[in-house]
Design a protein around this nucleic acid. Structure first.
Lengths: 345, 345
DNA sequence: CATAGTTCCGTAAACGTTTACGGACGCCAA
DNA sequence: TTGGCGTCCGTAAACGTTTACGGAACTATG
């Protein structure tokens, strides 16, 4: 005898009552409820997940999909961990179990999602590191599985999304650099598949145009969004005949390699070139300190979770108003890396 | 009509045959199997996880438990991602779904594991970032859930484990430094809860003793194992009346902050102090380059997965001999940070 | 006392699979 | 023809829950 039957037998009551007692139903005597709870703890009983979700048609599990390998996500490694923390905090309040669906860099994310989610694994999904054309959003919306994406895609299917405010970052960094006299400004972008590259480039172009400047296509650097990519960008930039006087780094970790490439060539950030980047835990340990855009990852996670819950009927009454389809603001942290000012002659 | 019944109805055969066809049983006509497979693809049928695991008593899910927050794990962020990749590669071959059980830094890991695993969520578990006294191993062994730990604990319950070879690292780094003439050598360790601290300190002590030296207790630096902790260690070290001439950094990311603290004081690694650390993706972008111990995280993941499978009856015949209870070797990558040699007068 | 209402609990069906069992059918040998 | 054997398939039970339904015991009201 196992499971709830064992508990019922031990207490000499029916399994129905045991179940009701454990689930906090009102139609059970408080006295017996106490007995049941005590016995459950004593015998170490925990309801079986499969049985429960088979009956209820719900798993109480939310999947947060991410991918291994910085060369793909382009986010520093602690990035998703921090977001995850925020998501977790919300779901814990609703007794939802959050698991990370970590897709290996060797596997196709679409296949992975199909494999694990199609079989009714999760009640809802949070998608991160979305691609420009992302088959996952199509899949999830076809299957009617509640989901929210961190990052817009071109194939958005009406699902709620949140995204970092790359528009704002583009505008204020370009504006800041131009105000400091820079005219020749380089920018970086990740490889073609990720949407933020397009978004960022276009808004930089616009911001420059607003100042009567044009974006030089040769000054758009493309690389893998990790340290090694940043190093490569540094080398490429230094090899130019006519170097830019400033650069905006779109990804977090590339600043590390970029600094190194400059250092090897005796070029000093903030003195010889102005740099604006993204905050990461390492950024504050670069010298000279990196001027960068920072955001509260934990809050972002909270917003993601609440947005997802607002689309799930069982929870939506808790979250009538959501922060869906919002560009998450980033705050400029002033450092020394963009101290260089150009004085027009 | 849903699920397998719908498929059976559509094909006008019984659900039993459908199930057998999908599961590759021999007692089904090849012709009908093809029809079933085709229809399943057409209708997008995927067997329901709950129903299946309820019947079979097995979930086909393996959980890899990690924790958010570098201040806890002490491992650089890409560390677990890389290990995960290796684990995933093995499990994929056996059609096992691997999910990451990411425990938030706000939650007690023991509670988390109990909550999510006790209800029959996973067939097996990989535990990482084990604590010195880790209630999780007790819990899992009580419940008879197959598991393997990355890192030994004091409460080991006979489960297989793998661990990094901190013994080897201690010996060869101490030996190397002593050979370079160093006598006053500092080491670092994480906070009290993690076992590797004890292991490492003791083996450093022994290695020093083998050279007739004693480990100065004032030269054991303790900190959170992230960049900020490394910075603090640097400040503390510089504040000493009698500075050590060399230091061995046990964690990956602390080198970043440590370098920064030195840099601010005008102390240069490799010239004014010898440093040996652990490899991380950032390490190669420090300058001067960090002499560090490196290991193949992916291979470690593969070994972890195979070890776990060897303890699971359904798979053990595939892995009769395992690499369980092995200290995973690390390889020294020579850099410039330990170039300083002391010439005794 | 009769009736209605309340409180609590037991019964049994249902969720979607897998699989043991047995049966139908065809084939071959005796 | 009979029996045995192999191939393929249908039937139904089982996995561990939750929950709709109904009923027993008790209380309150007239």
């Amino acid at each position: 005898m196992k499971g709830i039957r064992r508990l019922a037998q031990h207490l000499d009551i029916s399994i129905g009552t045991v179940s009701r007692a454990l689930n906090g139903r009102p139609d059970v005597n408080e006295e017996t409820r106490k007995r049941v709870l005590a016995a459950a703890k004593e015998l170490g009983y925990v309801p079986n997940q499969s049985g429960r979700s088979l009956r209820q048609g719900t798993t109480n599990i939310i999947g947060f999909m991410m991918q291994t390998g910085t060369e793909i996500t382009g986010q520093g490694d602690t990035f998703f961990m921090s977001v995850f923390d925020g998501v977790q905090a919300v779901f814990a309040r609703h007794k939802l179990d959050l698991v990370a669906l970590l897709c290996s860099s060797q596997e196709d994310p679409g296949d992975y999602l199909r494999r694990v989610v199609a079989r009714g694994f999760a009640d809802g999904v949070i998608l991160s590191a979305t691609q420009r054309h992302d088959p996952r959003v199509e899949f999830l919306s076809e299957r009617n599985i509640p989901f929210v994406t961190l990052g817009r895609t071109l194939t958005d299917a009406g699902q709620p999304w949140l995204d970092l405010d790359f528009e704002g970052m583009a505008q204020s960094s370009i504006h800041r650099l131009v105000a400091h006299g820079h005219r020749r400004i380089a920018i970086t972008r990740p490889h073609d598949d990720v949407n933020l590259g397009y978004v960022f480039v276009e808004h930089c172009r616009e911001a420059l145009a607003a100042h009567g400047l044009t974006l030089d296509e040769d000054l758009i650097f493309r690389s893998t969004p990790n340290e090694a990519g940043g190093y490569q960008i540094g080398r490429d930039l230094l090899a130019l005949d006519e170097r830019p006087t400033a650069i905006v780094l779109i990804n977090e970790t590339i600043a590390i390699g970029f600094y190194q490439a400059l250092s090897e060539a005796g070029v000093r950030p903030g003195r010889d070139i102005a740099i604006i980047g993204r905050y990461s835990p390492h950024a504050q340990f670069l010298s000279p300190s990196l001027t960068c855009f920072r955001l509260s990852l934990r809050d972002l996670g909270v917003a993601l979770a609440e947005t997802l819950l607002s689309t799930m009927p069982a929870f939506s009454h808790h979250y009538p108003h959501t922060t869906a389809n919002k560009l998450w603001p980033m705050e400029l942290v002033e450092g020394a890396s963009d101290a260089l000012q150009i004085h027009q002659s």
